[in-house]
Computed example of a mutant assay.
Amino acid sequence: MVSKSQKRGIAYDLSSINDLNAMSDGISWYYNWGTAPNAGLPYSLSAARGVDYIPMLWNENFHEPSVLKFFKENPGIKYMLVLNEPTIGLQAYTEPQRAAELWPKFENIARQAGVNIVGPQVTWGTMPDYQAPADWLEAFIAAYAAANEGRQPQIDFLGFHWYDYGLDDQLTLLARFGKPFWVTEFANAHSQQDGAQIDSLEKQKAQMSEMVALCERREDVFRYAWFTGRVNPDPHFQRLFEGDGELSELGRHYISLPY
């Protein structure tokens, strides 16, 4: 009998067995934007608590033999996150053409390891001409097809990040690409002083309840991950942990929500 959501996870570098134990009754996976778990929390420990670690190839700087070695040693992991926020300058822009050149490397690793590709992790960005995630995706897919005899890139799941109201509408906009989703970062960080700003724990709890219910309800959302575990300052009350192994009120709320 399944006793927790198989979709629910966290976007956070779990490094403490106490944090894992506090959270593991309510999540089934996590990632840390890296290609291996934190040295303080080997994968065997999280796996024993029913929490998968999912590696990410954040951009084009990765060591392929190390990635393949990790998958070989952990054959239960069947997914690989790739390419984080290509249209946001803080992450260093990845132009659609460059992503098309890089994608066969991801495909090669996925083929050798027998894993699914989850990505790119798209969101609304700041790249000139490609602020809208759909615009960047269309250009990327066209560039890949042009370089690969009309073939489509392997995208088994599409990653998406969202920090405002309207998650349902955003996913529906991207549904035309025909891919199931991993919502790999989400919370509500609405900060405009318009009466709808998230400036209290109760408002964030209400938003969490609504967004989690949506992700659980939508059949095209395969997994989702709240951002984040700890952050300081925390103006929008997003943190899931307080001290080591101590859930925040929001963290307790997250693992208690229906699925």
Rank of each mutant, 00 (worst) to 15 (best):
V2I: 14
V2N: 13
V2R: 14
S3Y: 12
S3D: 12
K4I: 07
S5F: 09
I10Q: 08
I10R: 04
D13Y: 08
L14D: 01
L14G: 00
L14K: 07
S15R: 02
S15E: 11
S16A: 05
A22N: 07
M23H: 03
D25I: 03
D25F: 05
S28N: 10
S28V: 04
S28G: 13
W29C: 02
Y30V: 10
W33F: 09
P37T: 09
P37C: 10
G40C: 07
L41A: 03
P42E: 02
S44G: 01
S44R: 09
L45P: 03
A47W: 14
G50F: 06
M56W: 01
F62Y: 15
F62C: 03
K72S: 12
K72R: 14
E73K: 14
P75I: 00
Y79L: 10
Y79F: 11
M80N: 01
M80F: 05
L81F: 12
E85M: 04
I88L: 15
L90R: 10
Q91V: 11
Y93A: 00
T94R: 04
A100L: 01
P104F: 01
P104G: 07
F106I: 08
I109H: 04
R111T: 13
Q112G: 01
A113P: 04
G114W: 04
G114R: 08
N116A: 13
V118D: 02
V118L: 08
T123A: 15
W124P: 09
G125M: 02
M127F: 12
D129Y: 10
Y130T: 09
Y130P: 03
Y130W: 12
A134P: 05
A134S: 15
E138V: 11
E138H: 09
F140L: 10
F140W: 10
I141P: 00
I141E: 08
A143C: 10
A146N: 14
N148T: 06
E149D: 15
E149G: 09
G150A: 07
R151C: 01
Q152V: 02
Q152R: 15
P153F: 00
I155Q: 01
L158H: 06
F160T: 06
Y165V: 07
G166R: 02
D168V: 11
D168H: 12
D169P: 06
Q170N: 14
F177L: 08
W182S: 07
T184A: 13
T184Y: 02
E185K: 06
H190I: 08
H190V: 04
Q192A: 14
G195W: 01
G195S: 09
G195V: 03
A196P: 07
S200K: 00
E202D: 14
Q204F: 05
K205L: 13
A206M: 05
M211F: 00
M211D: 12
V212M: 06
L214F: 06
L214H: 08
R217A: 15
E219W: 05
V221L: 13
F222Y: 13
R223I: 04
R230A: 14
R230P: 06
V231W: 14
P233R: 13
D234Q: 03
D234C: 03
H236V: 06
F237K: 00
G243M: 00
L247T: 09
E249P: 11
E249S: 12
R252Y: 11
P258Y: 09
Y259F: 13
